[in-house]
């Protein structure tokens, strides 16, 4: 639109209305940062940066260190990314490059639906279906066969780091798949044809043309998924076991920043509440940085991956 608004008589307050609606979004972001920071200030003032490294979280003694929660967050989300990354990119390759045309739309829609299922439902499923399987089958097997490694040490009680990571894997899988698929679709078909015409096999076209030309976008999708895994609250809370200790084994119960907030929020006051806000601030800053990077990467590759982004950032 070449015409600036407000150049016609009688437009009244309409332009101001839309402009202030736009400005409100800015205000909202600033407000969230400010309010979480303000809530976190007493704890930040009391503990300083040591908050991040202290391992004791004791509401009775009113001493709070976030190391277990932060470590738990990092381990579960990275493990989830390690599981969902290959699976999601593989699925995206299938949907974008391999599936017959008639299957592509319905199959992509199924993946979209996977993203639509509320995370609380994944938590419920994780708690009542996955956790028992973990306890009696997978976790027990790991404990029996790999238990000599500290990271697979038992007892396998069903809930814990690994179970939380598997649930998170399901939560972030559609994000990775949908965005990777869109950036792969954006690779011009002339390039694929050019490579086929040289005598390449299907996989050679995928690995030498499609993936290199969409790698920035795929990286963005992975980052976005990581951000989502870090911020996910309910699904994790239900299956991580909620233990305030540095996790030493994949089978051990642990805590993430988000699960700690959900668990303790209702009974927290004063410094305890402020410490939870500080935990929230750490979470907010990490996810903001990761998401800003991810959005930048994805938009650099493909302007109109916007649709998938809007649907999958949370």
């Amino acid at each position: 639109m070449a015409c600036p608004s407000g150049d016609k008589v009688g437009e009244g307050f309409f332009p101001y209305l839309t402009a202030s609606a736009a400005a409100l979004l800015l205000l909202l972001v600033a407000g969230i940062l400010l309010i979480v920071f303000r809530g976190a200030w007493p704890a930040l003032h009391t503990f300083g940066l040591a908050f991040l490294f202290e391992t004791v979280w004791n509401p009775v003694a009113d001493v709070y260190g976030a190391a277990p929660a932060i470590l738990g967050t990092i381990i579960t989300s990275l493990l989830a990314l390690a599981l969902a990354g290959p699976l999601g990119v593989g699925t995206a390759i299938f949907l974008s490059e391999l599936a017959p045309l008639w299957l592509r739309k319905p199959a992509s829609f199924v993946v979209e639906l996977l993203a639509a299922v509320p995370s609380i439902v994944y938590g419920l499923w994780g708690l009542f279906v996955l956790a028992p399987i973990m306890r009696t089958v997978l976790g027990a097997w790991l404990e029996r066969n790999l238990g000599f490694l500290p990271m697979f040490q038992g007892p396998s009680i069903g809930v814990g780091v690994l179970t939380a990571s598997v649930v998170l894997t399901i939560v972030i899988l559609p994000t990775i798949t949908a965005i990777s698929r869109e950036v792969m679709r954006a690779v011009p078909s002339e390039l694929r044809e050019g490579m086929y015409a040289l005598g390449a096999t299907r996989w050679e076209v995928i690995s030498r043309i499609v993936l290199p030309n969409s790698k920035t976008g795929i990286l963005g999708a992975l980052l976005l998924a990581l951000g989502r895994a870090i911020g996910e609250a309910m699904a994790v809370t239900m299956v991580i076991g909620n233990a305030n200790a540095i996790p030493t084994s994949f089978l051990a119960p642990a805590q993430t920043a988000a699960s700690q907030i959900v668990n303790e929020f209702p009974e927290a006051f004063d410094l305890h509440l402020s410490s939870l806000f500080l935990l929230g601030l750490v979470l907010l800053v990490i996810t903001l940085v990761i998401n800003a990077g991810a959005v930048w990467l994805v938009y650099r590759t493909k302007q109109n991956a916007g649709g998938a982004l809007i649907r999958h950032e949370r």
């Binding site: 639109m1 800015l26 809530g39 996810t287 903001l288 800003a292």
Partner: peptide, 29 residues
């Protein structure tokens, strides 16, 4: 209407940032 105005660019960025804010944090807010 104002695709490339400074407010529009900032707002769009804010909207994308906001979709990335964990829902839990919105709860704290």
């Amino acid at each position: 209407q104002h695709r490339e105005s400074r407010l529009a660019i900032a707002t769009r960025f804010a909207a994308r940032v906001l979709t990335g804010v964990p829902s839990l944090i919105v709860g704290l807010f």
